[in-house]
Every structure is written in C-alpha cells, then in structure tokens.
Design a protein around this nucleic acid. Structure first.
Lengths: 145, 145
DNA sequence: TTGACAGATGCAATAGACTTGCATATACTA
DNA sequence: TAGTATATGCAAGTCTATTGCATCTGTCAA
C-alpha cells in the first residue's frame, strides 16, 4: 500500500485559505501555477476564456486581491502601469526584463541578504521586504542588436 | 578677479536640454532639487501653487515626461499607483520606505554591482538598470510599535 | 440530499493616474 | 521686435483598479 501523499491541489489550497473553490478561481490558480512569468489581469482573463470560462475584470481583480491577502499569490510590479501576479509557492526570486523583446526571466539566489543586514546596521531601518528587478538585454537580443 | 564658476542653474539646465525655460519648469526643477525625497505630480503642483504658479495636471505630466526623456529627472516607482520623480543630478541611490509612517529615506552606496556582474555571468543577461527599494520600519516606528 | 447563508460574481458606476487633440499663449532666434 | 517652434490649458479619452448592489453558488449542517 503506497504512502498517502498529501495532495496539495488548487482546491485544498483554496480551502485552507477559507476561500470558496469556484471554477474561475481553480482555473486562475492553475494558470498562474503553469506560467513561468508573472501575469496581468488581462492575460489571466484571456487564459480563462481559452478554457471556456468567461469572467468579469472586477472578479479577477477581486480574486487576485483575496489571493494576495491570503498569501497564495504575490503581486509583481515591473514598472508598468499594471500589476502582475505570480504563484507565491514559487520561491522568492527576482526578474530580468528584456527591454527589447519584453522577455521576463526569473533569477533566484541573489544574495541580497547581505545588503539588508548592512542597511539595518547602518540606518537602523528594519527591512521587512524589498523590490528588486533588473532591466537590460537578454542574450538573444544582445546578438541581434 | 574671482574665477568664473560655471553657474549650472535651472535655466542653463533646461537650455542644454533644448527645453524652453518657462516659469513653471524653472519652479518645478527647483522644487525637485530642494526635496529630499521623490515627489508625485500632485505634490509638485501643490508646491508650485505655493509659489503662485498655477498649472494644469497635464502640463506637469508632460514636463516630467520631457525631463525624463532628457535625463533631467528620474521616475521612481515605489509600488504606489502613481510615479514619483527625483532630480537626476542626485547620485544613484535607493529608498527605504517605512510601512508605518510612510517616511522615505535615501540609501546610497549599496554595492549592487556585484549582483549585476553575477547575473551577467550566470544568465548572459546584460543589465542596463535596476529597481531596488526596501520596505520595513524606520528607527522611530520600531520604537513606537 | 437538501436548504440556508456567507461569500462570490456580474454589471454598472466610479476613482485616479496619465495621455492626447486642439486652440491659444509664450519663449527664443534672427 | 516679429516669426516660429514649442509649451500650456482645457476637455475628452484611456487604462487600471475599486465599489455598490442585486443575483447566484459553494459549503456545511441538519
């Protein structure tokens, strides 16, 4: 008899956050989980539509807000006029944004902790979180230009 | 006879950028130069009004855009719904934002260059710029709470 | 299984940051 | 000082996001 693996699917994730598991929410979570970059509300709605789920923008904004509140997703501000969202299960990381092709790549293991410690010591400021993104040219676009 | 110091005032700054030196622009530049933190458009307009200069929001947005294009000011995105602007003559630095009292403090000499070098080596991504801000509690608010 | 109800959704209105078109006004150059 | 390129004000419009309200639907208890 196989060991009982705890199935942490989208439904249980919502249950544990005291959120009702509606079709739109389940699908939105799956979309975010499957994406390799943070998505904005318009894109999420498009993906849902491709699964046959029509949503009102207000609903998706509300979803993202409650997901954020519960720590299920993380808002990502990439200096655009809109917010993007990524699944919070992904280990904390930062992003590389190509200014030519708009590609977005993740970057982990930036050892920014050293910087934070220095700030706490030098300024007496208690760092709770930080925003860090890099802008430039991805490998492909460096070759083209 | 004293040495002729080059007077790099707001007027010449605008001239050199091929921008007309209007009263509103001169005053806005002075406001930004005098401020110790990045300001949003509404605040800039308020400061101008205090100097007796009434401006239309559109005008100030257009000013900030052309100043940005010319490298005179720098847009600062502090995860708010609006952009702030700071005078670009200030050496590049980052910001500490107190989540309790909303104070904004500058922090220079963060040695983020090491991180950038690492990224270029590891990812082949050519870093042109970055966004880095820290969120937490300033010294005062740590004591209060 | 069902029924009640808290919470989710759609729709429409609203808010706020920012942009744009156009007519007028003004800084700069010759 | 006159002519022109550019800046400004005003009004309308765009885009992201929020909110009020009526309706609908998961969920839980019976």
């Amino acid at each position: 008899m196989p060991i009982q693996i705890k199935q942490h699917d989208c439904k249980t994730e919502l249950r544990e956050a005291d959120l009702k598991a509606t079709p739109a929410r389940l699908a939105a979570l799956k979309v975010l989980e499957a994406s390799n970059k943070p998505l904005d509300v318009a894109t999420i709605r498009l993906e849902l539509k491709r699964s046959g789920i029509n949503t009102d923008p207000a609903t998706v904004f509300r979803m993202m807000n409650s997901f954020s509140d519960k720590g299920i997703v993380r808002g990502v501000n990439l200096q655009e006029s809109k917010l993007r969202y990524e699944h919070a299960a992904k280990k904390e990381h930062h992003h590389l944004l190509c200014q030519s092709c708009s590609a977005i790549e993740d970057i982990s293991d930036c050892n920014i902790n050293a910087l934070e410690k220095g700030i706490e010591k030098k300024k007496g400021f208690l760092v709770k979180s930080h925003a860090l993104e890099f802008y430039g040219l991805c490998q492909k676009c460096q070759k083209i230009n």
